[in-house]
Design a protein around this nucleic acid. Structure first.
Lengths: 190, 190
DNA sequence: AGCTAAACTTACTATTTAGTAAGTTTAGAC
DNA sequence: GTCTAAACTTACTAAATAGTAAGTTTAGCT
């Protein structure tokens, strides 16, 4: 095997992720990627035959990163609140870069996507919701969190706050996002 | 003046709104509109010279409808909770049609939009937030609502719940959206 | 040294895109 | 009845789009 540049596939993935979070799936083209990476259009097609293959790769990669974050948090001594704040910090990073989360971005284009990609998105969402729900349950069990209603509903409330908070902050400014974060913690803090 | 069909402009606006809410701004073309309305591409350009003019028109129209809703609710005998539920009902309608709200839809494409459109989106968001904040303040004053923190933050929390709730329900199903709605009301109900 | 396969480039195609210029139809004002 | 302007259609263009087929370079294995 003779990889001239073994990082190109990674670079495409990283840039594609960035373009989706900044401009949306239907607003960037293979030409944009090729131009930015100083390769030809066909080189992008070599690594990802079609745009939906690239999107599938991006989502898989996003899931993998989430799994890694979860694993790094599942260590003794890390409280439920620290875990929740770690998840929230991911959104804060996104907001600081004027991005939105992948899920929120592809959601507007969702009805135009092929079934294989829809399934991946579904799996990603399910995974994230389950991860946060676990943290909320753990926090409640250890009396670190308090909330009325069930953990699933509270998870949905928090994650929609974060996802749409990132979106909103693009329009009205980052102040609103910060207010939302404070509000979330106030709601669950014991 | 001789309008052969005076409703065409309205039809374009209505269909454009629908396409944005269903597929996203960058996922539909003038050809889609022309085909659906059985007119030619150039006829769409006649009414809306460029795609951004159409988007501007759609947003203006959306604002107008919100103003009308607010006016219809500002009548004696309508409680704050009824008003809040009326706003929430708009999102429920959207969810039932597999749509998402205009703001959430254009948000992923926001960074690709011209300044004139960005301003309109900003105005729309500001208006909606102000409307809901007023209702929350009224409800709190009349002891119909209770919530800790200020009304602005509570408004942000609720509106992000609704916007992202609609988006999420596309992926995981309408059940999650309904749970979110119940959660919202439980949070503010006295 | 030569074979092989990965990682490309060159060169192209068909389609879709927004957009335009110029001509046509139609309804109502006068 | 004629004039006028709104509301179109026809017939285009230039650019961008995803995608492909075929050839080229390069690194490592033997």
């Amino acid at each position: 095997m003779a990889p001239r540049n073994a990082d190109t596939k990674e670079d495409i993935l990283r840039l594609g992720t960035e373009l989706i979070q900044l401009y949306g799936y239907n607003a960037f083209s293979y030409a944009d990627i090729a131009k930015n990476l100083h390769i030809r259009n066909a080189a992008v097609h070599y690594h990802y035959p079609g745009k939906e293959d690239l999107l599938a790769g991006i989502i898989d990669n996003y899931m993998e990163k989430y799994r890694q974050l979860e694993a790094s948090l599942n260590q003794p001594g890390i409280t439920a609140q620290q875990k929740l704040e770690a998840y929230m910090a991911r959104y804060t990073e996104i907001v600081e870069q004027n991005k939105i989360c992948i899920i929120g971005s592809v959601c507007s284009d969702y009805n135009t996507l092929p079934a294989s990609v829809k399934e991946r998105i579904h799996d990603l969402v399910t995974m994230v919701l389950d991860m946060v729900e676990k943290v909320l349950l753990e926090g409640k069990r250890l009396k670190q969190f308090h909330f009325s209603g069930n953990a699933r509903t509270q998870t949905l409330l928090i994650m929609t706050n974060l996802a749409a908070g990132a979106q909103l902050s693009r329009i009205t400014g980052k102040g609103d996002y910060l207010a939302i974060c404070k509000g979330i913690l106030q709601q669950v803090k014991a």
